[in-house]
Amino acid sequence: MKPAGFAYHDPQTVAEAVALLGRLENARLLAGGQSLMPMLAMRVAFPDHLIDLNRVEGLDGITVEQGVLRIGAMTRQRSIERSAAIREACPLMTEALTHVGHLQTRNRGTIGGSLCHLDPSAELVTVAAALDATIEVAGPEGQRDVAIADFPLGFMTPALAPEEMVVAIRIPLWPREHGYSFMEFARRHGDYAIVSAAALLVLDSAGRIARASVTLGGVGAAPLRVTTAETALVGEAPTPALFRAAAACCEGIEAMEDPQAPAWYRQRLAAVLTRRALERAWARATGEAA
C-alpha cells in the first residue's frame, strides 16, 4: 500500500497554488491528507502532481464578524473543535466535530479538505448545508462565492473547476438563543455516520417555531435539506407530536444503499435521528438542555 509516484509542490501563496493548478495536468491538492493519503496508498488516486497546501499562508483562521463566521480552508478540525468563538456562535459545528474521526485525524484534517472530499456522510458538509454556508473559491480570475446548495455536483464531486480551490467557508450565524442538535448513528465512535441529522430551531416570543433547519447526511450523495420538514415546523408550537410529524417527512426520502445499510434502514434512521435532533434542539432553545 504505497502511493504511486507523483511530483510534489509546496506553494507558499494561494496565487502560486492556483497558478500550479492551472499549469499542471492531473494535479491534486493535498490539505490535511486524512482521506487523500489512504486513496494514494491504495492506488485508487493517481495524481501526477500533488500540490501541498500546508505551507500556503493565510488559509487558516477563524473569525466571527457581523454575524458571519468565517473559517479558512486549511483550519484544522481540531482548531475548530477547540475554538471558544465557534462554541459560542455556532455550537452545532462544535457538536458535530465530536463525531469526526479521532483525535489524530482531527489534528491534521481540515475543513476545506472535508468540504472538497465531499463524503456523503461527512459531518462538516452536513453542518455547512444546515447553516446555508457559502464557499469561497479562488481561481485564476480571482475569487467567487458558491452557495453550499450548489457546491456538490454529484457523488464526491465539488463544483470546482480544475484550476480552482476552496479558500474559506462563511457561515451566517443564527440568533444567539437558537436551539441546535447534531446527531448521528455510526457503528463505532469516530466512524463515518450511516445517517446524521442536524437540526436548528428558533422560537418566537410566543414560543412558536420561527425558523427551522433540518438536514440529513449519509442518505444521498450530498447532504439533504428536508424542506418539507422545515415547512411543517415553522409557525407551529413545538410538541413531540409535531416533531414526529416533521420526522415522518424523512420516511419518503430517497436513500442510498451500501454493504453496511440498505435504503430502508437509512430511511428509518433518518426519521428517528431527525425526531431526536429536533427534540434536543427544542430542549436547548428553551434552556432545558445544555
Binding site: 510534489y8 509546496d10 491528507g33 493519503m37 501541498d52 481540531r78 489524530q104 485525524t105
Partner: peptide, 16 residues
Amino acid sequence: LVDGHAVRACLMLAVQ
C-alpha cells in the same frame, strides 16, 4: 507527535 500533536504518520508525507 508532530509539534506536540498526535498524528497518523502513515497519513503524512515525510516531506511535510
